[in-house]
Design a protein around this nucleic acid. Structure first.
Lengths: 217, 217
DNA sequence: CGATTTCGAGAGCAGTGCTCTCGCTCGAGA
DNA sequence: TCTCGAGCGAGAGCACTGCTCTCGAAATCG
């Protein structure tokens, strides 16, 4: 429908201006020249509007990351990894509030429904693909795992990438979380007065993440 | 004062139950048997209450981390690093909403005042101390930095730990952010259906972070 | 004792999410 | 062609929010 898109567009604008907690259904309706109750024809509740925005954000981020990977399809896997990392970072810096919506503190009283899962997985799946290429080219896994982690690592590998050794999958999941630590700290201002040249810092840190994924030991 | 403490206590209870965005001054006052306007004698606004809670949370986390470090004072630096990491994780898992308050998406329209800086720095300073010990014992820095990062790395080192080589300080800042990526993903539910044995996974990832801080290569 | 400060109560304003009812419009079936 | 129903928006209203203002009681200080 046309109206739902207009609502989401206006909501996104308010999101960028004010943040999720300040997103007001009435203000969206006002800006659209409707009355607030009319909005409930399209979204059963404010949370459902948020869900829509979350799915859109995941998809937009996924698209951005996939485009970056496609553009670097002829480069080495490490360069492709870096390209995706930088694309994700750039997307987050350009839309901090949307980033906060999907990777920041969850909106209280609201838990993302199952419908968000496919969109949310896109970046993760993309990273798995890159690591798979890396493993095919290099074929050496990172350090062996401690015994206590082996069952879990095997389980994760079976779930996420049965063709890769558990050490690689484990390292990949960790690198994924750590990547979001780097980006989150920057987006949420934790690097203020600590890191200044964040571009260079991020590039280096992301490259070292890649290095940790495939280097011997 | 006695009353401000009671207000913060009740607010913390509501925070744990509902989250920051749902924190209602009126509800706090109601629970305390006062009227909402009376609360403004103690906190000029809702945001100031939040600031109070944020500082308390930073201090509580800092204390927890420092206690863990103190307990492991005779262990190796790597064990001490791991002890602090696990203490931070444990604190976060026990108080997810307070963790979200300080390390999640910033509350919109609200920017933390300067007064939070000392409390916010405690864990970082603690990690620097541990890395300093590590460097004194091992004395080998991680991989050399790319040229583009050298000026920034020097600047960071001068700011944070002038007695340590820029490579170590840079690696430390990155490890710090990555640590919070690991914890944030777990606290905010991003590991749901991905990582199950999160305890073991975290221990391994945190240990590898330490390894990356000081390993030769 | 008197004056002043401190504190809580209460009313009230503007805003919020959400529900309910009521008309209008438009398109498909008889 | 007429009718009926579904879809849609308006409006009023409920319970709630943060916040301001005024007023009266209590406690503290000179």
């Amino acid at each position: 429908m046309e109206v739902t898109a207009a609502i989401k567009d206006e909501a996104r604008r308010q999101l960028a201006a004010e943040g999720a907690a300040r997103l007001s259904l009435r203000a969206v309706a006002r800006e659209l020249g409707m009355v607030s109750s009319a909005l409930y024809r399209y979204f059963p509740s404010r949370d459902d509007l948020l869900t829509g925005l979350i799915i859109d954000a995941y998809d937009s981020l996924g698209e951005t990351a996939e485009a970056a990977a496609a553009e670097a399809v002829d480069a080495t896997w490490a360069q492709r990894w870096l390209a995706v990392c930088e694309a994700v970072r750039g997307w987050a810096l350009a839309r901090p509030h949307e980033y906060a919506l999907i990777y920041g503190s969850p909106v209280p009283g609201y838990s993302a429904p199952e419908t968000t899962i496919p969109a949310a997985s896109r970046v993760g799946l993309l990273l798995i693909d890159i690591v798979r290429d890396a493993y095919r080219q290099r074929g050496n896994a990172p350090a062996p795992l401690p015994a206590e982690l082996e069952p879990e690592a095997r389980r994760m590998a079976a779930d996420l990438a049965p063709d890769l050794p558990p050490e690689v999958v484990t390292a990949m999941v960790a690198a994924w979380a750590q990547l979001y630590g780097l980006i989150g700290f920057e987006v949420f201002g934790q690097f203020n007065k600590v890191v200044e040249d964040r571009e260079a810092f991020f590039r280096h840190a992301a490259a070292r993440l890649a290095h940790g994924l495939m280097a011997p030991r």
